[in-house]
């Protein structure tokens, strides 16, 4: 790696002020499993000057129920979330998503805040030494459109960028109705992702950091489920993943949330599927129709229409599991 500056901070305030000092030219490092890779590959068109290490801030790795919600500290490790009995029992989709993220070692290092903030895995964007100066880096073109797009978006572009969000935990948190508390505000997690500007993954300002994940307690008659499709059963980022949470009223669905990821620039809330199942029983026919509706708007590229089929399947599987 090329040299850069590195600062340890003791408090969140210090982290924020360090970010302010660098006015957009510093990044936070927590688990480091994403940012270190990008530094190694010289992915950035303009490389950040400094990393601000927040692992030195004490007591930010908590997992607790408080004020009627699950609160997760930004430094909580994915491995701990995956094996936490409380999360496994009540917030099942999140535990499953954490468990299916990357590899055991990455989960022992990677944090929940890092996982929801991670950059896309588009291989044009990630090509070392900024070989493709794509839209996401401020360039002119998206190279995936006419190139190798087997893993890219099936729901169109954001300002021509076709990269997808690769997080496994994000769709689970969206299905669970989580909020992200930042150093400035509290956001619905679905609103946490940047919708307009491909140069940014999240809406976080340059001097803003995630300070807590808040997940409301699920209703008594609800279940949640996460499914992931990838080539390998470990290590891989998702080709498509999906999380659903369903609240039942007797045999019928009272409310539902369904979220796909790795299909669009942001986690893709499958609103039509969720609305369709309300008031119905969760049988094969219902979930199939819901899945078809959810993918109605899909616009596959030259090489990724298969992802539509997979996305439908995952919607069906997660919904049925919530019965």
């Amino acid at each position: 790696m090329k040299p850069f500056k590195h600062y340890d901070v003791n408090t969140l305030d210090e982290a924020v002020s360090a970010l302010q000092n660098f006015a957009g030219k510093a990044k936070i490092i927590a688990g480091g499993t994403d940012i270190v890779g990008m530094f190694k590959d010289e992915v950035f068109a303009e490389r950040p000057e400094a990393l601000i290490n927040i692992k030195t801030i004490p007591n930010l790795d908590y997992i607790k129920e408080e004020d009627g919600m699950l609160k997760i500290g930004p430094l909580a490790l994915l491995e701990d979330i995956a094996h936490d009995e409380l999360i496994k029992g009540k917030y099942t989709a999140l535990a499953e998503a954490a468990r299916r993220t990357a590899s055991p070692h990455i989960r022992e290092m990677g944090t929940i805040s890092g996982n929801i903030c991670q950059q896309c895995r588009c291989w044009y964007f990630r090509s070392p030494n900024n070989r493709f100066n794509c839209i996401r880096k401020g360039g002119e073109d998206c190279y995936a459109e006419e190139g190798e797009n087997r893993y890219h978006s099936i729901f169109g572009n954001v300002k021509d960028c076709l990269a997808v969000n690769p997080s496994d935990t994000a769709p689970a948190l969206i299905a669970l109705g989580a909020k992200v508390k930042t150093s400035k505000r509290v956001l619905e997690i679905a609103d946490f992702y940047e919708k307009e500007e491909p140069k940014k993954t999240t809406v976080l300002d340059d001097d803003e950091i995630v300070v807590e994940i808040q997940v409301p307690q699920p209703a008594a008659n609800s279940k949640s489920k996460f499914e992931k499709f990838a080539i390998r059963k470990s290590i891989d980022f998702p080709i498509v993943n999906c999380a659903s949470q369903v609240e039942m009223d007797g045999d019928t669905v009272k409310s539902a949330r369904v979220c796909l990821n790795a299909v669009f620039a942001n986690p893709y809330v499958a609103q039509k599927a969720a609305e369709y199942v309300v008031g119905k029983t969760l049988d094969e026919e219902t979930v199939t129709a819901a899945a078809d509706l959810a993918l109605q708007d899909a616009k596959p590229l030259t090489k990724n229409a298969y992802k539509i089929t997979i996305a439908k399947s995952l919607i069906k599987k997660t919904l049925l599991a919530c019965k």
Binding site: H6, T33, L51, N53, H105, I106
Partner: peptide, 13 residues
Amino acid sequence: GRPILSCMTLAIE
């Protein structure tokens, strides 16, 4: 106590 990847860990931390 945790198995971690030393290639993705900054020694300074």
